[in-house]
Design a protein around this nucleic acid. Structure first.
Lengths: 149, 149
DNA sequence: CTGTATGCAAATTGTTTGCAAATTA
DNA sequence: TAATTTGCAAACAATTTGCATACAG
């Protein structure tokens, strides 16, 4: 009778529901949605100082396997995580201020799948990452010709 | 009179043209196009054993800054590099055999730029990575439900 | 010659892992 | 109680960096 109590999601996949895991998931949901492991760790520590970074990583992996969290390599840097909520969306990252803007791109999906069909490929994952300058930083785009940071 | 001799590309940006840098660039151009730092190092060492991995990394960075080489995070793993040759293209990576297939996607570019215009964003870089199963491995797609590797 | 580039090894960063103790079911 | 999960610290992989030496300009 497929129950849907949030504490139950773990049991459904044969994993234990622990304080840490629930806390981490909660932090991710409340966060702006693009936290890296350390950011998650910081926020988690704020509520329970004894949670280790290792546990954060392990839990993120579990949550990812459960399909509750998605991992992104936004700026080609280290990993960022966000809770899986609504439909698929993609990311734009501002090279100047680091702001992340999400957007939908149905065309991209359609194109990708068309391509797949064309080449006999099964596309299971589409990752579309744009980068550039957001409205605020647009003006700076010209200036930045030298080394950054 | 903008000269275009290959040895000159370095001078144009105020960098020295060294044996190592030229060798690394050459290796990249001759490679299948998606080598990681170590693969580059191996191939370079085959021709000159004293070239260090550090130099490979430093040179790849330089070449990237010069726009001669592009860095990709294909399977969300570590970096892969390929020489910048023709037009823009994107990558599909097979989750089973690791094969990388390049493809064009003009629609994606158009969509991305349209989006940019729409939101007042300047898009300077589009990264579209698909993953799934190539024609060969398509059948395996079903099987893979458990842990991988 | 002057200074940038290299080699080597040590340092960093991001992430994973072994093991004993704590916790969940 | 039995089996996961956690914490801690040590292990790792990928990449970067300090410094003395080698080489390009």
């Amino acid at each position: 009778m497929t129950v849907h109590k949030s504490e139950d999601v773990f049991h459904k996949v044969g994993r234990r529901s622990t304080t840490q895991r629930r806390l981490i998931l909660e932090v991710l949901k409340q966060g702006n949605g693009h936290l890296d492991a350390e950011a998650v760790h910081d926020r988690v520590k704020a509520r329970d100082p004894r949670v280790s970074l290792a546990t954060v990583y392990r839990s993120l992996t579990v949550l990812e396997e459960m399909g509750l969290v998605a991992r992104h390599n936004l700026g080609e840097e280290h990993g960022h995580f966000e809770p899986v909520v609504g439909g698929t969306h993609y990311h734009f990252t501002c090279r100047a201020c680091g702001a992340v803007i999400e957007f939908q791109a149905p065309e991209a999906m359609r194109a990708a799948h068309r391509l797949g069909a064309l080449k006999g490929i099964v596309v299971t994952d589409i990752r579309l990452n744009l980068s550039g300058y957001c409205k605020k930083c647009r003006n700076l785009a010209r200036k930045e010709s030298g080394r950054k940071e």
